[in-house]
Design a binder for these strands. Sequence first.
DNA 1: TGTTCAAACCTGTATATACAAGTTGAGGTA
DNA 2: TACCTCAACTTGTATATACAGGTTTGAACA
Lengths: 240, 240
Amino acid sequence: MSTLYGAVKHHVLSVIEDKSYGAGDKLPSESALVKKLGVSRMTVNRALRELTKEGHIIRRAGMGSFVASRRMRGSAADIISIRAELASRSEIWSASVLLREEVVPPVAVHEAFGSPSTATAFHVMILHEGNGLPIELEDRWVSTLIAPGMLAQDYSVLTTTEYLLAVAPLLRAEHVVRAVVPSEEQAALLNISPVTPCLEISRTTWTGDKVASFARLLYPGDRYELTAKFSNVGANARAE
Amino acid sequence: MSTLYGAVKHHVLSVIEDKSYGAGDKLPSESALVKKLGVSRMTVNRALRELTKEGHIIRRAGMGSFVASRRMRGSAADIISIRAELASRSEIWSASVLLREEVVPPVAVHEAFGSPSTATAFHVMILHEGNGLPIELEDRWVSTLIAPGMLAQDYSVLTTTEYLLAVAPLLRAEHVVRAVVPSEEQAALLNISPVTPCLEISRTTWTGDKVASFARLLYPGDRYELTAKFSNVGANARAE
DNA sequence: TGTTCAAACCTGTATATACAAGTTGAGGTA
DNA sequence: TACCTCAACTTGTATATACAGGTTTGAACA
């Protein structure tokens, strides 16, 4: 990172990973980092403050800074791509395309699309990783009418959500969230034990009155959680 | 707001709303705010930096600060009680109160409340049933300041959410959704097998700046799913 | 006229200093 | 022993100061 506080953030993150600080362990204090790294306390303070907001550490006045339990947080109130979510936590996104095809979809899917039963649809399966750790298994069907160029994209560079937002206005979305047990193949792909519960988000998006895309997103329950913030309408939006 | 930078954030937000700065309009510069509000530039800088991260404004070195295009506010989201949810599915609600006490809460809870570590809080555990089948295990902590009459209610007649809504305006709520495995006791109470994954919703509600209630709601994964509908998705992607 | 360059803004970062407030533990007192 | 107080630590906030770098504007110059 080009900034000093960025370097401090990176240092703390790598210390957490390399020296295997576990969740809840106490981290060096600000003044200790000042001495060790030779920067001012304000710089250390900003680095740790941002790490707190990103969910990596927990700080308590008088007690110290501690490693937070490692778990991703997604927001239900925003359709953002997994890449943006990872970026907000200073994690590096990578993805591998497991499947990319144009086939006749199962009944449930082509019914949702409202297309004739002989029509084909695009089908992709993509494994998303944050800092190399599997975090999302994406199984997506896309209408050929809405996004004809779908299969021409390289989804290890651009996420499907980013592409779809670019080619079509997504006017409406519906999420269904479930807790499920993964299949053996899914568990293997996500690199988790088959008894680890997973969050499954079924997301349907519309452009106009047509279904554009139907996705099933699977997240390891011990690495991902979903947040939603609501404020009452009418009242002034309170800061923070 | 108790902090100065928080007051600056609030001021900028209210200026955006009241004086109807439109998206893209140029906001007063840092030095202008310094003069107007009588605080240091570092304080203004921190306020504007946080507003940038929260997506309210966009800043460019050399040019200035600008109002960002509005992002989605939780529109179709309501704080709904389990009874209303079941009623909408024509199911009959019943509940049994498992625990009702006033004690010093564990660290994680009083941390959420932000109260001194010696203060007590109300604690209730309630099992909700739909058509006689366990559907929600509610483990709730409530601030004694917000709802002093909490323990006097009969929660097999009225839900906690209904009571809290009656005595205090719940201005803000945050939900964290996880997929978890239940403990043996939880599984027994919910009448499910211990390997059945559950949806766990941690709900924190605020009245004003104070946390009013902190609840952990556990749902059997095979009997409950969460839905959320959004419209006007991605009307404005956050640029760059 | 057209180009260049410097001044005057803007945000972004880094530092030293200061005080407030939460927590812990040592040591003294009743 | 039981309790209290204080010192020493922690994080959180606020300030003044400084410099780096982007952007715009306008004046001086060829």
